Simulated assay, not measured.
Amino acid sequence: MHSTTGEAPGKALGGDFRGDLAVAAKLTVPVAMGYIPLGAAFGILLVSQGLPWFWAPTTALVVFAGSLEFLAVSMISTGLSLAAIAVTTLLVNFRHIFYGLSFPMELLRGRAQRGYGIFALTDETYSLLAGTAPEELNGRRITLIQVLSHGYWVLGSLSGALASTALPAGVEGVEFALTALFVVLAWDHARKRTNLRAVGYGVAASVLAGILAADQFLTVAVIAFLLMLVADYAMARSKRA
């Protein structure tokens, strides 16, 4: 996914900042549709647990890990130990190690851009990058995609925290925005791909986990999906040999 011409990524694609920003904004529309309402749900949840409203945008800006932030609210409010919080954080975000294996780090220039690229790598931005043709990416576009996505999350968290006092008690269902977001991203990814084996593996892993271990659905589904990908890679490598 990297340029071999030696030119700067943006220049190699013939794009300027405005052009790259327009592309990034268009690509991140599905992320905005999920991050803003989901961030608002996080802000509402945080304030409902008795924490000051400003912790919502601060956490969104500094942590930027949606599922973990939701868990962190409950862990902090219940007085969980730092060791337990650390272990939970490792288990929840361990999947990002695999994202890094195929993240186009070589397109990013400089320590600041690379450091932010690592920090702001989320499920949604990884899905967007994986579903975008390599020739349509450059370092600036990748950074803009991540910055915009980060901004949507902070905006949603801030708006939810500020609006929480005006909402009636017992509002339910807002947290479904996360599931809806992943559905949209999965559909968009499948629509752009001619090789749908990975999509099929995901569906098969989900069905298998739902039948065998509904109580541990996510863990079993991820493990099954990983094993299918490893087997697929092994078979492909065997054929090439």
Score class of each variant (00 low, 15 high):
residue 19 G to K: 05
residue 42 F to T: 05
residue 174 V to D: 06
residue 237 R to Y: 11
residue 64 F to D: 01
residue 103 F to M: 10
residue 229 L to C: 14
residue 140 R to W: 13
residue 21 L to E: 05
residue 62 V to Q: 01
residue 21 L to N: 04
residue 231 A to S: 14
residue 7 E to S: 11
residue 164 S to T: 06
residue 81 S to H: 06
residue 219 T to D: 01
residue 182 F to G: 07
residue 1 M to T: 11
residue 71 L to N: 07
residue 57 P to C: 10
residue 6 G to I: 10
residue 164 S to C: 08
residue 182 F to Q: 03
residue 93 N to P: 00
residue 132 T to L: 14
residue 24 A to G: 10
residue 131 G to R: 11
residue 30 P to I: 07
residue 58 T to Y: 05
residue 127 S to K: 11
residue 65 A to R: 01
residue 87 V to M: 08
residue 231 A to W: 14
residue 122 T to Q: 01
residue 153 W to N: 07
residue 151 G to I: 07
residue 205 A to N: 07
residue 58 T to N: 08
residue 162 L to H: 08
residue 193 R to Q: 14
residue 109 R to K: 14
residue 15 G to K: 15
residue 95 R to G: 10
residue 216 Q to K: 10
residue 77 S to L: 00
residue 164 S to K: 06
residue 123 D to P: 11
residue 89 T to M: 06
residue 197 R to V: 15
residue 186 A to V: 08
residue 80 L to P: 00
residue 46 L to N: 00
residue 181 L to Q: 14
residue 104 P to W: 03
residue 177 A to C: 02
residue 212 L to S: 11
residue 84 A to E: 09
residue 119 F to N: 00
residue 177 A to L: 03
residue 15 G to N: 13
residue 89 T to I: 02
residue 133 A to G: 03
residue 123 D to I: 06
residue 34 G to Q: 04
residue 190 A to V: 12
residue 189 H to Y: 09
residue 113 Q to V: 10
residue 132 T to Q: 15
residue 230 V to H: 09
residue 15 G to V: 15
residue 225 F to L: 15
residue 25 A to S: 12
residue 190 A to K: 05
residue 14 G to A: 10
residue 147 V to R: 01
residue 161 A to Q: 00
residue 203 V to P: 01
residue 74 S to G: 13
residue 190 A to L: 13
residue 188 D to Y: 04
residue 102 S to Y: 01
residue 50 G to D: 08
residue 184 V to E: 05
residue 201 Y to I: 13
residue 32 A to H: 03
residue 59 T to M: 14
residue 107 L to W: 02
residue 236 A to N: 15
residue 82 L to N: 06
residue 194 T to P: 02
residue 156 G to Y: 01
residue 81 S to K: 02
residue 86 A to R: 10
residue 110 G to S: 09
residue 154 V to G: 09
residue 211 I to M: 13
residue 140 R to P: 11
residue 45 L to W: 04
residue 62 V to P: 06
residue 200 G to F: 07
residue 4 T to P: 06
